[in-house]
Structure formats: C-alpha cells, structure tokens
C-alpha cells in the first residue's frame, strides 16, 4: 500500500499584524523593534543555549541574531513566517559559532556529574527517590548523546522536539529539503534510542 505524503505547506504571506510590525521596524520605529525583539528573544536565546550549551555564548549569539535581523529585515519578503525566518538566521549564526567552538573545545569533556548538576532536579512524578535518580541520570545521558550528534542532526531534533517546529519550518530554517529533515530526524532518534536502551534499567 502506498503512503500519501503530507502536502507541502505554504506560507506565502506573513500575517497582516506581523507585516505591519516589519514595516514599522524597517522605518526605524524603535517601539516596533522593541516589540519584535520582545516577541522572539526567549525563543532565540533558548535555541542558542540548546545548540551551544553555554549561557554566555547564547547571550552573544542572541545579540548577533537580532542585529542580523535588523540589518536584513528590509529584504524579508514574507516567504515564511517571521519566526521561521529568525530561526533560520539563528541556526546559521549558531553553525558558524559552533565551528569555532569545536576548534576551541574539541578536547573538552563534560563529566556526567556536572551535567546532572547543571540539569537540576527532575520532577519526581510520585516515584521513589531511586526511580527519580535513575530517570535523572537517563535524561542526562540522553542529553549527552544529543550533544554528541552532528550539528545538523542535533539542530533538527531540537527544532522538532523542543521548539515544536513542523518539518517544513525545519526545512526552511536549515535550508534543506523536507525529505532531508525526515532522514536526519530518523538517524538522530536511532542514536538516541540506542543510548536510551543502554541506560534503561
């Protein structure tokens, strides 16, 4: 039996309110710029933090992203939602920064204890302390496995699982085809599942 592909979603125009906001920003309206940043800053910062793993790096990257947004906003033609367009800029900036980061920290190792400490406490969900600890350790190992994935696979997983983007939006953000998004997600999840099976008590 054949399986129907999902119809390619199109978003030829940004929403009218969004379009008006963009026009005001390109005219130098400071309040509009503030509104634009305020609406997207948490999204950009979190994505940067999850991709780079450093608060300071994420802060710097977020600034770079919004500077880039203001510089190129006049060229935005509404071929996608503004949010997706900003994601694309953020991913590209993060990729550039990640290459430099790899060169600087290739030999660095992050200890599991430190990683668990960074992650804080997992919700107990009424489980025993041992169960909570095991779950916490599993999540930490899973996150470590995510960190070890190639940048493009990791980005696809983060955009899908954490930011909740659809395949078409991920494809636009990464500048790749939807089929490539599927294959990257499949490979990434295979690796994560292998880690999960290994850790699972």
């Amino acid at each position: 039996m054949g399986v129907n592909e999902l119809e390619t979603a199109t978003w030829t125009e940004a929403a009218p309110a969004e379009a008006a906001l963009i026009v005001r920003c390109t005219r130098g309206d400071e309040a509009a710029c503030t509104e634009l940043v305020g609406a997207h800053q948490r999204m950009v910062f979190n994505l940067a933090f999850h991709l780079l793993g450093s608060r300071d790096e994420a802060m710097d990257l977020s600034q770079e992203v919004f500077l880039r947004v203001f510089r190129t906003l006049a060229s935005f033609r509404g071929e996608s939602a503004l949010r997706t367009w900003i994601y694309r800029i953020a991913v590209n900036q993060a990729r550039n920064r990640h290459r430099g980061w790899l060169r600087r920290h290739r030999a660095d190792q992050v200890s599991l204890d430190q990683h668990i400490k960074d992650g804080g406490d997992m919700p107990s969900d009424g489980r025993t302390p041992d169960g909570v600890l095991a779950s916490k350790e599993t999540a930490a190992r899973l996150w470590q496995a995510l960190d070890r994935l190639p940048f493009d696979q990791r980005t696809a997983v983060i955009l899908r699982e954490i930011d909740g983007l659809r395949y078409e939006e991920i494809a636009f953000s990464l500048g790749i085809a939807v089929g490539t998004v599927k294959s990257r997600l499949t490979r990434a999840r295979q690796a994560l599942r292998a880690e999960l099976l290994e850790v699972r008590p």
Binding site: Q41, N46, A139, L142, E161
Partner: peptide
C-alpha cells in the same frame, strides 16, 4: 525527556539587558 530537561536547563537570562 528532552523537552523536560530542556525546560529545566533554561538559564535565567537578563533578556532585557540583551535587548
């Protein structure tokens, strides 16, 4: 698990200063 952990890891950033 990834979503839960990501939510826990989100640092408190001074986004107003960044803006």
């Amino acid at each position: 698990m990834l979503r839960t952990r990501a939510g826990l890891m989100e640092p408190r950033a001074d986004l107003a200063a960044m803006l």
